[in-house]
Amino acid sequence: MSPSHLHLVAAPAPPQAGAPTAIASAPPPLAIEGLDAGYGRTPVLHALSLTVPAGCVTALVGPNGAGKSTLIRAICGRLAVKAGAIAICGLPADTAEARGKIGLAPQDIALYRALTIAENLAVFAELSGLSPSDGRLRVAQVLERTGTAARQDERIDRLSGGWQRRANLAAALMGAPRLLLLDEPTAGVDASAREALAVLVRALAHDGLAVLLVTHDFEFAEQVADRAAILMGGHMALEGPLADLLGQRFAHRRAVEITFAAPPPALRAELLASLGLATEGATARGLISDSPRAVSTLLARLDTLGLPPRTLTLKTPGLPALYDAVTSAGV
């Protein structure tokens, strides 16, 4: 491979005859149809379908034990599929070719800790099958693209959590993947590093990479994701463009958060629940209509209950509200 053929993100397959564009005709980086999978005789995933298109960040969220890690294993071709199919760029997931199109950034810092960022990238360049000269070029490109060039000669175990996360992500790009799997990329990262990671993930999606982001960090997910997928009990409870999902679920609704001087007594909490407000300590959250009179009506009801609010915040419902709505409904 000559250096001119090296790209940070691998180009999609050439267009089929008669196809309108390459992107439109190329199989999606990840397409899962009717997947049943599990460990031995223990089923974990049932009739699960998910598509992760190129150029998009898809946030995969779900409670602990929902099957997120199992799904990642299945995508990586490391789990026997009992029914359905997983295709990576049109290739069966359990093939080496398909695995070669996936960049994996595991939850832990999956790097050689005594080696520098550049040395780690060089290791994974060689493992990806690049020649020494192409490997050096790819290392330089990835260092530049991920903003790690300035710290390239520092050992992983001497970097801060944020830089370690960046390096962890950088290593996932060494094989020029089409699909990037990010498993909890913000774990142990401070606010500024988190912001930098969000910019980087968006930039990578802009480059054409399909990103599947597995996270419990809703704020980060909301910041970077175009699409959302909510996994519950091995089923895909909800999946689609985030804006569409929010629009469908929360049309003419607003999220409200109320704080009280003290946690309401149990009886009052039940009355709040009848208004659609879930109480947690001295805070109640819920959804109300976005009509002009909704807030004044709510305030009047609270006054009647003898629960004057200290603060009341209104905002457009986002991924946390969607997640709460789906998981509390047990869809």
Binding site: C76, R78, A96, R99, G100, I102, G103, L104, P106, Q107, D108, I109, A110, L111, Y112, R113, F124, L127, S128, G129, A171, A172, G175
Partner: peptide, 11 residues
């Protein structure tokens, strides 16, 4: 640490 998982994905 997950290095093994990462290596599995390489050629």
């Amino acid at each position: 640490s997950g290095v093994f998982d990462r290596i599995l994905m390489t050629r």
